[in-house]
Design a protein around this nucleic acid. Structure first.
Length: 570
RNA sequence: CGGGGCGUAGCGCAGCCUGGUAGCGCACCUGCUUCGGGAGCAGGGGGUCGGAGGUUCAAAUCCUCUCGCCCCGACCA
């Protein structure tokens, strides 16, 4: 492709409404343009990267036995009413009516449609296992779209759905997808982790998220230094700490004027945060609950929600706190509380700790479980922290990472097949409910995540497998006929061996070309200038390392070909 | 939805407080020079100042309403 004939509108200045690196760089590199909040045009360069990811996804899905189809983005309300999600999904589901006043929505996901299709067509155990997938635009009317393609309202997603005759068979389908996903992100050239995850509103029994590692990631994840354990912090299990051995001392009241936060109280009393127990008041389905965690730990609301089995869990308002504790916010404690108390596992092992005193400017010292209060439940309700012992092995501890969720696999069980009555006849002629799994990959988000992970001050640094072009040829002077002839030759030779080449034949100054090449992140660059060409040489520069080598034309072609082939076959 | 901010040329911004000829940089067009890390000089085109209403002799500027966008929060396969 000749740059002068192509469409890559790069910009020098960063548009003011971009916050994160991938958004800024995709705008600057001319990959995307915003059409409306959270809705983007994919320009040629951006589309090429998206197509690369799609292609890898298709190949691996097909290899794993999944079959591609395409479902509509507009879906009738009836299906969503049948699965009860018309009510549950909330405003994120964009709804509208057609001319006959019939209700529709833009599909944020396709469980309903696929289940409807399958329940009509799959009647026998002989038709399974079946795994159907599509690559489609999804629409979710996010409360606050942000970060460009990272969290748009419209985005491209690959979603797959597996149908099996039993839970065991569904596990096999799940495992195939899990392995396919590992290969997909490996082939994309991304550093990632597959982590155990909470299933959220999709439901189902278990799930893994695929996280691209990047400091700017919205999710916190942990992995073990010794074994394979890795999990989203939302889900990561904490192991029991060895209990403290200390004689309980006498309960003591202590004045703590104006000292509300953990920092203030511990500084005032001269104790570490780990000697204090925070009492967090929540409201679970309308009922107030006190959650106790060590002063330097954070409550994990998802764990608490699962433990209590409630639908809604929120932090209590000031009024509720005052009503329940009789004190302003900042002085809540378990001693004398009349509501349900849930203590974290770590708190169970603590002795002689500090808590709020349920009165203004008052705390207790030497509080002990059992003597001073009795929790209704003791369970793991905190977020794990860096350095925690691994819950699965003896040797390791947990490391923290930031990650961007690009893929998610779920075992759905029979949640949708039951509500939509997707059944089949087994070998004995008995009616059974189909076991399902669903598997998503945010295609457009993967490109953005890739950029979050791979960039520098000059721009994007694409890994070869998802770069819009593998190689860029920069002609230093377009007026020099020999230079242009050498470029043409390189272009032909590289294209002939399957390398995707962008030939920068623009009549621009070299500096501008180099800046653009760096910005759009083409991994390999061949610079053809008259000085080196007089020696029969061209320059090959690696975008990632900045390394430069002088090569003959033939050597350059061989080297680039070798690098590209190696990267695509990894 | 709560809090904050911004809408002025394609992009980035100044002008607004204190009303009186709409500006700067980049980009774009023409010419000359230049040509290995976003060139220089000269000339040029382009703006209903987000929209509506009001105050005023006069509104980008003051007031009211409205729309859009961004940030923080709650929310989130």
């Amino acid at each position: 492709m000749r740059y002068s004939q192509y469409f890559i509108p790069t910009v020098k200045e960063t548009p003011s409404d971009a916050e994160v690196v991938s958004h800024k760089l995709m705008l600057r590199a001319g990959m995307i343009r915003k059409l409306a909040a959270g809705i983007y045009n994919y320009l040629p360069l951006g589309l090429r990267s998206i197509r690369k990811v799609e292609q890898i996804v298709r190949e691996e899905m097909n290899r794993a036995g999944a079959i591609e189809l395409l479902m509509p983005s507009v879906q009738p309300a009836e299906l969503w009413q049948e699965s009860k999600r018309w009510e549950q999904y909330g405003k994120e589901l964009l709804r509208f009516k057609d001319r006959k006043d019939a209700e529709f929505c833009l599909g944020p996901t396709h469980e309903e449609v696929i289940t409807d299709l399958v329940r009509r067509e799959v009647k026998s155990y002989r038709q399974m296992p079946l795994n159907l997938y599509q690559v489609q635009s999804k629409f979710r009317d996010e409360i606050r779209p942000r970060f460009g393609l990272m969290r748009g309202r419209e985005f491209i997603m690959k979603d797959a759905y597996s149908f099996d005759v039993s839970s065991e068979a569904a596990d096999i389908s799940y495992d195939k997808m899990y392995q396919a996903y590992r290969r997909i992100f490996q082939r994309c050239g991304l550093r990632f982790r597959a982590v155990e995850a909470d299933t959220g509103s999709i439901g189902g029994s278990s799930s893994h998220e695929f996280m691209v590692l990047a400091d700017s990631g919205e999710d916190a994840i942990v992995s073990c230094t010794a074994c394979e354990y890795a999990a989203n912090v939302e889900k990561a299990e904490a192991r029991l700490f060895p209990p403290e051995h200390a004689e309980p001392r006498e309960l003591e009241k202590v004045e703590t004027p104006q000292k509300r936060s953990v920092e203030e109280v511990t500084a005032f009393l001269g104790i570490p945060a780990s000697s204090l127990v925070k009492t967090l008041l929540c409201v679970a389905d309308g009922e107030p609950v006190a959650a106790l965690v060590r002063g330097d730990h954070d409550l994990n609301e998802i764990k608490l929600k699962h433990l209590l089995g409630c639908e809604e869990l929120e932090m209590a308002s000031e009024e509720v706190v005052e009503r329940v504790t009789g004190a302003p916010v900042g002085f809540a404690g378990p001693v004398g509380l009349k509501i349900k108390i849930v203590a974290d596992l770590v708190v169970q092992g603590m002795k002689n700790f500090v808590t709020g005193g349920n009165a203004r400017d008052l705390h207790f010292k030497n509080v002990n479980i059992g003597r001073d209060f009795t929790p209704a439940l003791i369970a793991d309700i905190r977020n794990v922290v860096h350095g925690d012992p691994c819950p699965r092995c003896e040797a390791g501890h947990l490391e923290m990472w930031r990650g961007i969720e690009v893929g998610h696999v779920f075992k759905l069980g029979t949640k949708y097949s039951e509500s939509l009555r997707a059944t089949f006849l087994d070998a004995d002629g008995k009616e059974q409910v189909i076991f399902m799994g669903c598997y998503g990959i945010g295609i457009s988000r993967t490109v953005a995540a890739c950029i979050e992970q791979n960039h520098d001050a000059d721009g994007i640094i694409f890994p070869i497998p998802i770069a819009p072009f593998h190689c860029i040829i920069s002609a230093v002077s377009t007026k020099d006929a020999e230079v242009m002839a050498a470029c043409d030759e390189l272009y032909r030779a590289l294209t002939a061996v399957g390398v995707e080449v962008l030939f920068d034949d623009r009549d621009e100054r070299p500096g501008s070309k180099f800046k653009d090449a760096d910005l759009i992140g083409i991994p390999l660059r061949i610079v053809v200038g008259s000085k080196n060409l007089a020696e029969g040489k061209v320059e090959l520069k690696y975008r990632k390392s900045g390394e430069v080598s002088l090569l003959t034309l033939a050597e350059a072609v061989e080297t680039v070909k070798g690098l590209v082939v190696a990267a695509l076959n990894q």
